[in-house]
Amino acid sequence: MGHTYVAVGWNRQKRIYDRTLALAVLLSLGVFVGVGAALFPNTTAETLLIRGLGTTALVLLHVVLSIGPLARLDRRFLPLLYNRRHLGVTMFVLALAHGALSLIQFHALGDMDPLASLFASSTHTGSVAWFPFQPLGFVALMILFVMAATSHDFWLAFLTAPVWKALHMLVYVAWALLVLHVALGSLQVEASPVGPALLLVGALWVSGLHLIAGRREAADDREASARTDDGRIDVGQLSEITDGCAKIVTVEGERVAVFRDGDSVFALSNACQHQNGPLGEGRLIDGCVTCPWHGYQYDPATGRSPPPFTEAVPTFGVEVIDGNVLLDPHPRAAVVVRGEHSEAGT
């Protein structure tokens, strides 16, 4: 392998984040088990724990799935993206505990292999009430396992961000399977309307957020930029770009971030090499383009991360003529500086 494993670098923010997360999980489990024991005193501790772990994991999954589209729709949610993977791994651990305890409770005490029993205990796919809902949860758990196991940056670098992201988009399939797992499982053995209402609200929330965010992204992708006679992209007036920030333009389906630094402009791919975060929504900090997701930085002129880091993103030729920013749509490694015009990237 061409990439070496580097242990997670813990810092103060990560410790605070994880302690808060651990407290929230313990609080959720405690409230669920405590209230459950008070309302249903004859329910066994195992059952309460299984339900509590599953419920907490499902709520956490909805939180994880909400962060992405919320950050796309409102920049104030961007900080939540930082360490989102900690939420995901925690959610997997809770789901794994729920699955393992369920397997022991319901399938390990007979004379059949527990996993075989899980798949064989009901074959009535034509029945809603007795639909085999447990295999749905098992398949979802396997997807979550793959995601948790590849959540480290080593796998991100090894697989490359596009492949890694494509793999992790399976979380949407896992979410769908888990919603069905609950709808066809625990909801079938209770008559209360509270469970169905909460599940439906959660499904509507996640679906709505992703559909709205996706629609907005599609509109941005369709937005065609004007071209000059020589094929360059007319980005617009330099004065329209806030100093230290960028304007994002779409070039043949992909996005390019055009940054302004005083009277200079730079253009580089909008996709951060780390997780393909939107560089154009970041800012120039200490002279470097800084990704809003995890703070990865790039020299705007070369597209390279400052040493000792080795990440790099493509740059594009850009120049300003009569206050108008023109972009060469072909990626390149350096920025051309042309004679009497305002220099680009200098």
């Binding site: 596009p162 992703h210 629609r215 992909e254 996005r255 909008n270 393909n276």
Partner: peptide
């Protein structure tokens, strides 16, 4: 490639 992922997400 990122545009392809966005399309996949929408689909």
């Amino acid at each position: 490639m990122i545009a392809a992922l966005r399309r996949r997400h929408r689909v």
